[in-house]
Amino acid sequence: MSDVIQVAQLTKHYPGARGAPPVRAVEGIEFTVREGEVFGFLGPNGAGKTTTVRMLTGLTRPTAGGARVLGYDLATEVTQIKKRVGVVPETSNLYDELSAFDNLLFSMQLYGVPRRERKARAEELLARFRLSDKRDVPFAKLSRGMKRALTIAAALAHRPPLLFLDEPTTGLDVMSARGLRGMIADLRREGVTVFLTTHYLEEAERLCDRIAIIVQGRIVALDTVDGLKARLPARLAVEATLADGDGRTETLRFEGRSVEEATQAALARATAEGRRVLALNTVRPTLEDVFVHLTGLSAEVMLAEKGRT
């Protein structure tokens, strides 16, 4: 399996406002993305995720360092890279005035898809994303989930082997988000390499082969989900549901060096507070645990930050 992205000492500093020191958005990061994998790029708000994607897709020039994308040098062959990647930004940004079909057609025109293939490809994408009945509906009149699906379809119109997805499910209802996750899984099966940035840790855990965690412009961890979990200090946990005399219940988490030690801690707490243990479950570490351990931020804080932007 070859590397489709090779990043070496990639750095981006923005000039500080009015004599302030430069903003170090990305600081000498290094990683590779393998062909055919879904690569997750996680981090709190302002960690440097979007800046990294902007550099790798040719929107922003790096201050230092470089990268090779699909074998092309980012510094000298950016047009070749742009021809071969698809990008789905966080905001669905097709043209409100054009229909679903015309938006796909325009994407193909820009990327030089041969004229004879365009109509069939547009119909194929509309069918695949279940938008055939919206073919002639202006983009502005589609639902948020449909807009997202069409934006992904437009990014795939020229059959890129590498797709950048920036927060694909943000703001979608549960069913639309589920549908999109299914589409991402389908892309992976078809051999498309996906570079996914997301705030949803559960989504990353479910979809990604490997995950990089970036904090303050630096990558603090990069591994498979299981590899990341293995980095957690060897502490095990149980979740205990305790009930008091009035029937009020509370679920608490207890940690220990072994399941037995964690269970004893739960039982001791129940006894001390005069409560009964209703249920006791061992807890496997989640990606959220890894994230909290590495960044010091909880997933709730990260999502709350996201909501403010």
Partner: peptide, 10 residues
């Protein structure tokens, strides 16, 4: 954001 779509094109 539609301008970004054009800036991303080759």
């Amino acid at each position: 954001g539609a301008l970004e779509r054009l800036l991303l094109a080759p």
